[in-house]
Design a protein around this nucleic acid. Structure first.
Lengths: 329, 329
DNA sequence: CTGAAAGCGCTAACAA
DNA sequence: TTGTTAGCGCTTTCAG
């Protein structure tokens, strides 16, 4: 392996001179040329470990993600990656496999690796995690969950709930079903639902709530049960996956959307793009969120003081699955 | 930061003793306990850069992938990740964003980082790449493309083509349409097609071939054109994405699958799971492939001699989109 | 503008 | 079993 030392000897200068050259320090034109020549000849590349050992930090950015096969996460990743590449960072990805224990391990691991910063795409969260994050020696940015005292980047989930409710109301629906998820997930389980319910309630619409989990399959199976006796004319599902599950069940039961009921989701990362009919949803800007998260992390790395909470705006996309309340009878 | 040196001083022993302790070398019971105590107290963690600088290699495994938002790649990743985690490797992912230039950069970058090994999920391939890979100082395993003289792990694409053709023939279809992709992609563009065509031709079936690209959208648009005048009773699409595009177009045109024609894809990573009707496909074991790739890479890292080419078997999954050739008239 | 020297934290001979 | 010592390759004072 070619080392700095070797370059120095061949060029007849001291190591420090070569080092200075490498770091754009003051070096005379003559030696500059000489050194460059030798470097080209030998194909020398600095040893990153030695550099990092000195610097006590690396040019790596750690990302903690809940799983590899989530389309939304992948969009976020894409956004992170793009800027990381442009700005010369190397991405170290750690998958927690939806395991809170492993999530902690991963964050600790990245800290030991002395990454420049960590982006944590959070799924859930507990006190031990809080403790860990607060004592971290490395800047961290949390995506997707709001945590007291730690820089976060979140969606406007409450507002999204409001948007969907307003949409339903504007179409004349007065009897609504909200298919939600566990309250353990604050963003998806609580905020969206609250935005929806509060808006609907204020308008004196009737809202029923049922809970399902995140899987398309379970949503599908449950829907097979409740759809036949459905009273509501509008179903708001807490995620696009759930909406698709419901749509599948409707198809199975011979129900037609939006003729029999309107249906909407939340998410919109092309998930619903190929569902029939296209499902009305609130688009979440995942890709942009990834980019933004890296920008914010860089501020943190530079120790620029920034606000703790940042939000990404989302946008209602009306498709064919929702329509005006039909006047029956 | 707590260093080994500090631990040594506090414990009243030499650095080397602590180091030995850490690496399970011979240390007396008494000092063993003492050292452990101090480590627990201080929360000491070895500095990985220093370790790597010494060892001239890291415990990282580099993965080069074409993009983040490919479901099949994500399954592979999941498989890699699982074993990497179990075996104490850290994953460094580099995205090439479907850019051959960046693919090269990434491999070079990982080499400089002295990862223990590289898994390259290859999309395409040229001579410059060949050159690079052959001169690599780090073990590399290529997934998805077969390259002379380099360890590869590939799908049985030709065999998959054969399987689909045999399936179509067994159902009595004699007029087949193959919707393929560019021959630049050897695995998908050439092998699947050849397996299909050769099998069908031997059975004296009529085969027409048209080419599309990898996107569901383009497949959909093209199908809108050719489906109305379709002669064939069976369409074999080169990927599930393409099959879904065709199915969408059929739905749009009021054609019914499999009544009007049978349709099959290749792939089967739950992509087709929610399409209606469920599409017959050849399941590719992506997850298992990820696991296998890590196993193989570990052999390479240990310098165990292994064969150059490894294949993953796939399996035909018959769903509702294909049925017996109807006797018309 | 350049060189000598110290040291980042760890491992591995080699002696004791 | 333990300690001493010499680096791994690089950066960074500090003199010259």
């Amino acid at each position: 392996m070619v080392t700095l030392n070797e370059i120095a000897q061949r060029a007849g200068v001291a190591k420090s001179t070569v080092s200075r050259f490498l770091n754009n320090g003051p070096v005379s034109e003559k030696t500059r040329i000489k050194i460059q020549e030798i470097i080209d000849e030998t194909g020398y590349v600095p040893n990153q470990f030695a550099q990092s050992l000195k610097a006590q930090r690396s040019n790596m950015i750690g990302v903690v993600l809940p799983r590899f096969d989530s389309p939304s996460t992948n969009q976020v990743l894409k956004g992170i990656d793009e800027l990381a590449y442009e700005n010369g960072y190397q991405l170290v990805l750690t998958n927690s496999n939806l395991d809170s224990q492993r999530e902690k391990e991963n964050i600790a691991l990245l800290e030991r690796q002395k990454v420049s910063g960590i982006i944590w795409i959070a799924s859930f969260f507990d006190d031990a995690m809080m403790e860990l994050v607060k004592n971290l020696q490395v800047p961290i940015l949390i995506i997707g969950q709001k945590i007291e005292g730690v820089p976060c980047l979140v969606h406007q989930d409450y507002e999204a709930g409001v948007q969907i409710a307003e949409h339903a109301l504007a179409l004349g629906h007065r009897d609504l079903l909200y298919v939600g998820v566990t309250q353990d997930d604050n963003a998806v389980g609580v905020l969206r639902r609250d935005g929806f319910i509060e808006t609907a309630s204020q308008a004196r619409a009737r809202v029923t709530v049922i809970e399902t989990d995140f899987s398309r399959k379970v949503a599908y199976e449950q829907a097979l049960n409740y759809l036949p006796e459905l009273r509501a004319s509008y179903i708001a599902a807490a995620t696009d996956q759930i909406a698709i599950g419901i749509a599948n069940a409707a198809q199975e039961l011979g129900l037609s959307i939006p003729a029999d009921f309107s249906l909407s989701g939340f998410g919109g990362y092309s998930e619903t793009e190929y569902a029939y009919p296209r499902i009305t949803t609130v688009d979440y800007p995942f890709y942009e969120m990834g980019q933004r998260s890296l920008e914010l992390l860089e501020e943190l790395i530079r120790e620029t003081p920034i606000p703790m909470v940042h939000t990404m705006a989302n946008k209602l996309h009306v498709k064919r699955s929702t329509q005006n309340m039909k006047v029956k009878e």
